[in-house]
């Protein structure tokens, strides 16, 4: 593992042309032997299992208020204590995890998809570059808060009518976060693609008449994977925090839906009074982001043609 910096012998970029079956077997093999990646996968799976199975183990309604047990310290009944209304923090973490993870992963995926698409197209096709990058500039410059108010004004009631209150808000939040956070990925991917498309192996592929689509998928994309993986990791953290920021504008889930970001924000002022209110949500977010980071690392290593096959 640690001698990863050593270049693997006998690898040429063309090796990515190995048959499909072998490629994915290789990737899986490589991934399985990546200690960080496996650890990340295990932790992430545990978090996902906990938020799915949690209500079975700890059957407490996270919105149930018990005014007699306000600001309680951790105990058997409340393993992570309670908040200032007497709501169970552990139940909140479990329930909040569902929303935070769902929003984090979906919004990140949307932003990543948009960013990569725009970045690759702009970097690869010069005719599209100017137009796409000006659109990126525009999105970077838009005043986010007033924009959100406009989006809410235009779409909330329509989505609520079409999908019901919860799914409607979920879609709206994922859309808002995705559409307002793809620009950095796009700029980074474009920068890399600009350099990559002048590299020898791309020129070689083009000179033998490889179609553009194949060049992009086979030669360009695998080589911009590392910044994309970083964007993915940072994107999840961003999405989870942004989701909570939205609910302070009245744009997110109603206040009785706990989410990790919201628990952390609400708990911040109670930091000295009941520290467990901030430690657990903070830990949950950090662990999720860390585990995704390690999974991303492993995936990138595994997909890297030069590191594979050792």
């Amino acid at each position: 593992m640690t001698e990863r910096a050593e270049p693997a012998p006998g690898t040429v970029p063309g090796e990515i042309e190995t048959p499909e079956r072998g490629l994915w077997n290789d990737v899986w093999y490589q991934f399985r032997h990546h200690r960080g990646a496996m650890l990340g996968t295990i932790v992430f799976t545990l978090i996902v299992l906990a938020v799915i199975l949690g209500p079975v183990l700890h059957p407490v309604d996270p919105t149930h208020i018990d005014v007699k047990a306000r600001n309680a310290l951790p105990s058997l009944a409340h393993p992570m204590g309670t908040d200032n209304l007497g709501r169970d923090t552990f139940a909140g973490i479990i329930e909040g995890g569902r929303i935070s993870l769902a929003v984090g992963v979906t919004a990140m995926a949307l932003a990543l998809f948009l960013g990569t698409l725009v970045g690759v197209l702009a970097g690869y096709y010069r005719r599209l570059d100017g137009m796409l990058m000006r659109v990126t500039d525009l999105f970077l410059a838009l005043p986010i808060l007033p924009l959100l108010l406009v989006v809410i004004l235009l779409f909330r009631d329509a989505l609520r009518a079409a999908f019901g209150p919860e799914t409607g808000i979920f879609l709206l939040i994922v859309f808002i976060i995705g559409v307002t956070s793809w620009m950095q990925t796009a700029r980074i991917v474009r920068g890399d693609v600009l350099a990559l498309k002048e590299r020898e192996f791309v020129l070689a592929a083009r000179s033998v008449g490889t179609p553009d689509r194949r060049i992009i998928l086979r030669h360009i994309l695998p080589n911009v994977l590392s910044p994309i993986m970083v964007s993915a990791t940072l994107g999840i953290a961003n999405a989870i925090i942004t989701e909570s920021a939205l609910s302070f504008l009245g744009l997110g889930f109603p206040s009785d839906f706990p989410t990790w970001g919201r628990l952390l924000f609400d708990g911040a002022n109670f930091m000295a009074l009941s520290p467990s209110r901030v430690i657990w949500p903070g830990l949950a977010i950090s662990l999720t982001v860390l585990s995704v980071n390690f999974i991303g690392d492993g995936l990138r290593d595994a997909l890297d043609p030069r590191a594979r096959g050792r």
Partner: peptide
């Protein structure tokens, strides 16, 4: 949150909006 719970207890369904 508090009022929603009390109203639920007397059989009134509540949706919150901020």
């Amino acid at each position: 949150a508090l009022i929603k719970q009390w109203w639920n207890e007397i059989g009134v369904e509540v949706e919150l909006r901020q």
